[in-house]
Design a protein around this nucleic acid. Structure first.
Length: 592
RNA sequence: GAGGGGGUAGCUCAGUUGGAUUAGAGCAGCAGCCUUCUAAGCUGCGGGUCGCGGGUUCGAGUCCCGCCCUCCUCACCA
């Protein structure tokens, strides 16, 4: 009998198959199979309780009958699973050491896991939209999340078999440019993209313009007028715009390089400048859009919040009253382009949670528009995240003083990591320590952002973002380093030296093995809602189980069978940790 | 007002869709562990009426109702 890659899934299927033949169970029986508290079992089926409640039967008797029927099929190898009815009527499945050993021998490396996972998305074409910053600004801590979460989500989707296109939909066609052009004009500034201070100059000018337009409505109108001029093809503004885009893209690229971010295409809002007219005309033609206060808007009367009759009406403004396009216009044009050009089956938008209303309106408008024009709408998902807050508990914003620059954060992380590695491993060369510091520093930043549920806000804190102990990236990377060190000292490759490995035996070996089997469940969980923190939680638990094993069970012992099985446990831990870290876009190191 | 997020240990957070005498981690605190594979580690201890009040049932941090606190969004920003 083969060893199941994903035992929970197989047990679930088996129970569903057998149950209808047992008195008291219906054809649509749901076993409610889930991972169990390890103190009790590996998996448990809770579904019998619901059946008993409905039929007013005795849950333990029903559970026992079901278990007997399952055993009678002979499809459940009792050398691998220990089955029992427990508590009020749970069915517990406990993996035996034989099963653990067999699984570890069979599912050895990333290719096996990838093969298993790739069935989930099965070649679907997915476009993922991230990190999509607004240009013309220096990148600050607020830009961390879309980069980090976007990359992790992208890798998860890709790992599960999607054909993925990463599209950096930069905001390069909006009012921020109007503000900047206005500020440049007023200051009489000559922008030169080659100048080394170009970015700082833009930063300063943007701040000035921002303050001005906030304080003076006339200035805001002037900024909008500059934008309208730009969008209608004014040569001067277009030339200025090109210079600004050049400066800010160069700056963004420097940050992306440090995060190892490589998007496949960069199709910013400006790319759609000649594609918005089609949106306007089609929406008008099918009766979705109408004029309101001079603007072109879409109402959704089927949703009270977006209805024209709402107390505070919130129309989807598709074209501004001065005729220029906005976020909604370009997003609709983008949606159409992704459906037609990229043939997307699915589009994933990774943005700040404050844009939820916008995306709900966009998705509703898209659905009605596509239906009316007989197009197929891709599955649309908004993967949103909470805000990084400042010390005042408010969102970090450019206007409120100087937010911490992303570059300073990277530099500080790298410096602290360098100090740490120098203190702990002074024997390494300076070049090695620098490379390690870079990897560890950026990894620490990433991991903090990924480790909590993405929908949560969190406050910015140097110490939090740069912690190197506990549930952090350095902890996980360190676990990898310790595993690799064993192999290096023994002069063998990871994955070698397992001949004659016996099944896990000591409590710490068994606990580690059980945790290793949990990888597939963790992946399923993280993919379901595209929440990478589930993967973080799992990796931390795995590293902790390894830590306990490492302290309790010496690998290099005289008994060859014991040594072989411990080397096997080490090798699996190493590859699952490395695979998991890479899914989070954290590159493990050999030493630290 | 409407919609959304959050309220769990001193702090930062998990809690797999209602499950198992005892609600979990990490920091911080206390006590131990380096002449053997990297101590960025390991072991143990202390610390919680899961915002408040009702309800549903064999069983609630999780579901329902009503309150309270907090953050975010709501007409031409993205």
């Amino acid at each position: 009998m083969p060893v199941w890659f994903n035992p929970a899934r197989e047990l679930d299927a088996l129970l569903r198959k057998v149950a209808p033949s047992v008195a008291g169970f219906d054809a649509d029986f749901n076993p409610e199979l889930r991972p169990s508290d390890p103190r009790h079992a590996d998996f448990q089926a809770n579904g019998v309780l619901a059946v008993a409640k409905k039929a007013k039967g005795n849950p333990r008797a029903l559970a026992t009958a079901l278990v007997d029927a399952v055993k009678a099929t002979g499809e459940l190898d009792e050398k691998l699973f220990q089955v029992e009815v427990a508590g009020p009527g749970f069915i517990n499945f406990k993996l035996t050491p034989v099963a653990l050993g067999a699984w570890l021998r069979e599912y050895r490396d990333e290719s096996k896991w990838r093969a298993g996972a790739s069935r989930i998305m099965g070649g679907r074409k997915v476009v993922i939209d991230y990190p999509s910053p607004n240009t013309a600004k220096q990148m600050h801590v607020g830009h961390l999340r879309p980069i980090v979460i976007g990359e992790a989500v992208a890798r998860l989707i890709e790992f599960c078999g999607a054909k993925l296109t990463r599209d950096n939909h930069i905001g390069d066609w909006g009012t921020n440019f109007g503000i900047l052009i206005l500020a440049i004009r007023r200051a009489g500034f000559k922008l030169d993209s080659q100048s080394p201070t170009a970015l700082d100059d833009l930063e300063r000018l943007y701040k000035e313009g921002s303050v001005l337009t906030k304080a003076d409505p006339a200035a805001l109108d002037a900024a909008r007028a500059e934008l309208a001029k730009l969008q209608s093809g004014d040569a001067e503004n277009l030339a200025l715009w090109e210079e600004i885009v050049k400066v800010s893209n160069t700056a963004c690229q420097r940050i992306y390089d440090q995060f190892g971010l490589k998007t496949d295409v960069i199709l910013g809002e400006s790319f759609y400048r000649d594609k918005v007219d089609q949106v306007y005309s089609e929406l008008k033609k099918v009766g979705l859009a109408e004029e309101s206060e001079g603007a072109l808007v879409v109402w959704h009367d089927d949703e009270p919040r977006f209805s024209r009759h709402a107390e505070t009406p919130m129309p989807f403004i598709v074209r501004k009253k001065d005729g220029s396009s906005n976020y909604a216009s370009t997003d609709l044009a983008t949606l159409l382009y992704r459906a037609e050009y990229f043939k997307a089956d699915e589009i994933v938008y990774v943005t700040d949670g404050r844009q939820q209303d916008h995306f709900q309106q966009l998705f509703r408008t898209g659905a009605k528009w596509f239906t009316a024009t007989k197009r197929t709408l891709p599955r649309l998902r908004h993967v949103w995240f909470g805000t990084i807050l400042g010390e005042d508990g408010k969102a970090i914003k450019t206007k409120s003083g100087d937010p911490v620059r992303l570059q300073s954060l990277i530099d500080e992380a790298t410096e602290r990591a360098f100090a740490a590695v120098t203190a702990k491993s002074p024997e390494l060369s300076e070049a090695e320590r620098k490379a390690i510091a870079k990897a560890v520093g950026v990894a620490a930043l990433r991991y903090v952002d990924l480790a909590s549920n993405r929908t949560m806000d969190y406050s910015f804190s140097w110490d939090k973002l740069l912690a190197f102990e506990g549930n952090t990236a350095p902890y996980l990377m360190y676990a990898v380093v310790r595993v690799r060190s064993i192999f290096r000292k023994n002069g063998i490759e990871v994955g070698k030296g397992e001949e004659g490995a016996t099944d896990p035996e000591t409590p710490t070996e068994i606990a580690l093995a059980r945790k290793l089997l949990g990888f597939t469940a963790a992946l399923d969980l993280a993919l379901e809602d595209l929440r990478p923190h589930h993967l973080c939680t799992y990796l931390h638990e795995l590293a902790a189980a390894y830590g306990a094993f490492y302290a309790a069970d010496t690998v290099n012992v005289d008994d060859p069978a014991v040594r072989a099985r411990r080397l096997m446990l080490c090798a699996r831990t190493c590859s699952i940790l490395e695979t998991g870290l890479r899914l989070l876009a954290i590159e493990p190191v050999e030493r630290m």
